[in-house]
Amino acid sequence: MRKFALLAAVALAAALTLSACSKHEDEQQAASAQAAQVTRPADKNDTEGWNKYLVQLLQKNLQGMSASQPYAYLVTPGDTDEAKAQNDRQLSTVQDTVARGVLPGNLLAFAGPDSAKTADLVVTAFTGAKAGSFKDVIVLFIGDQADQQRVEEAIKPTGATFRFVQM
């Protein structure tokens, strides 16, 4: 009887220790996941920080995509010659994509620190797009609510599924 009580006490102690360890590990994992979260940069010119933040939002909103990778278009803020060149190049890429059409199951994401600028790019690129050319394609716009409607209207004729995420 005394042996049984001793064994039970040892088993209980082991179970409590394991439970405490497991809880500690869970807390550590949660803490590290939280640490890995990228916060919205305060400086619009922190390109690396913004790209990380926007891609993090993108990765949380890939539901419904059946392609293996999304296509993310990160629009550079600012009016420097370098930013203009990058944005012209990007607009040309998107216009080619829109003209060519996209296979069903793909997801195209548009984002940038300057929401209005990102919206301008989408609206320009989708002007004159063929009706129904983006059927079963998801177009994700990560920006400000103020720009949501005009982007949605520009996308609508293509038949794409529009998704908006507040940045």
Partner: peptide, 12 residues
């Protein structure tokens, strides 16, 4: 790697 999101930042 295949975790690439095709953001086109690396190319330029």
């Amino acid at each position: 790697l295949d975790t690439c999101v095709n953001c086109d930042v690396c190319e330029p």
